[in-house]
């Protein structure tokens, strides 16, 4: 059994890489992929602590998070395609119509 600290550190690293991607990129597709990385980091934490506590609640929650991430990607890709259709680009700094 690997120590739990390794998995928590891996999850923190994955989450911060995803956050780095969101903060530094302007492509909407890169936003989506970085959010996927962050969701995976959260699920790694859930599964690691499920094993740590000896209960399966974390694994079932991870299953739900996976399903929700799939739904989020479906809607996100719809939004990206509409963005591309209306603006000709998926740079998230271009659509400023709703910006106050």
């Amino acid at each position: 059994m690997m120590a739990i600290e390794g998995y928590v550190l891996l999850s923190a690293g994955l989450f911060c890489i995803g956050l780095f991607g969101i903060l530094t990129r302007r492509n909407a597709l890169m936003f989506l992929m970085a959010v996927e990385l962050m969701v995976n980091a959260a699920v790694i934490n859930l599964v690691a602590f499920a094993l740590y506590h000896g209960t399966l609640t974390g694994q079932v929650f991870g299953l739900f998070v996976l399903g929700l991430a799939a739904a989020e990607v479906a809607i996100g890709l719809g939004i990206i395609l509409v963005l591309y259709r209306n603006f000709g680009t998926i740079d998230v700094s271009v659509p400023t119509t709703m910006r106050w």
């Binding site: 996927e36 699920v43 499920a50 694994q59 991870g62 299953l63 996976l66 991430a69």
Partner: peptide, 19 residues
């Protein structure tokens, strides 16, 4: 692969299938 090492084989299969 990390899920498999954490004894979450079902979650690993779902990860490969869904993601």
């Amino acid at each position: 692969v990390h899920y498999v090492m954490l004894t979450a084989e079902f979650l690993a299969v779902i990860q490969v299938l869904v993601y």
